[in-house]
Design a protein around this nucleic acid. Sequence first.
DNA 1: CTGACATTTTAATAATTGTTTAACAATGGA
DNA 2: TCCATTGTTAAACAATTATTAAAATGTCAG
Lengths: 107, 107
Amino acid sequence: MMKSTQVVKALSALAQPTRLAIYRLLVASGAQGLAAGQIAEKLKVSPATMSFHFKTLSHAELIERRQDGRFIYYAANFKVMNGMVDYLTENCCGGHAEICNIPSKKC
Amino acid sequence: MMKSTQVVKALSALAQPTRLAIYRLLVASGAQGLAAGQIAEKLKVSPATMSFHFKTLSHAELIERRQDGRFIYYAANFKVMNGMVDYLTENCCGGHAEICNIPSKKC
DNA sequence: CTGACATTTTAATAATTGTTTAACAATGGA
DNA sequence: TCCATTGTTAAACAATTATTAAAATGTCAG
């Protein structure tokens, strides 16, 4: 189980419109990811601001960085999001699957 | 599908140690919920600070309020968390279930 | 009605966060 | 090597957030 502090860090990282949009773009882009510039262009955000947000997401381990020539690719790391969801839903139905409120869980 | 602004609001609400602890307590407490004072006592946080956090969670529609005599009960509202997870994982594997990185989804 | 209890509100302060601008690396093609 | 491209870092500022203490609200028992 993830530690509380890491969960808070991940939630904080996603709790901002630009970063949420970045993360969703990367979730939809799979393992290959997208170059920093492509993301900046799609979201219409300045490079410096993007770097700030990439750092926040990286620090929370929600995304991973890969250099390819002059380009820097970012890709979603699903482990932390999965861990976050597990942390939020722990003990969600007292072990009674028939009353479970969380479709994504196999209580 | 939830709107981005509501998702950000929900993530922000959970992205704080005390509120994350409140929410998890309520998730584990089911529909009955817990009285404000019980939660404050368990988490060793002053009533005024608790009220502030309850308001934030309520405003994000992550918890619901119910008055019972002099006590005010709060209970988790699972809809918003489920919506939040759906929003985060939209298009997560390009429709290819066999490569899906998110166990909780039925891609 | 009065007093005690449960919780919220308000106001003030301290800490954190997001954006901008300008300057700084690192890469690779001419 | 030189220069344009790609992206990051640093410093400054504005905006948001969390906590505290004090006062206020609402509810019920006597």
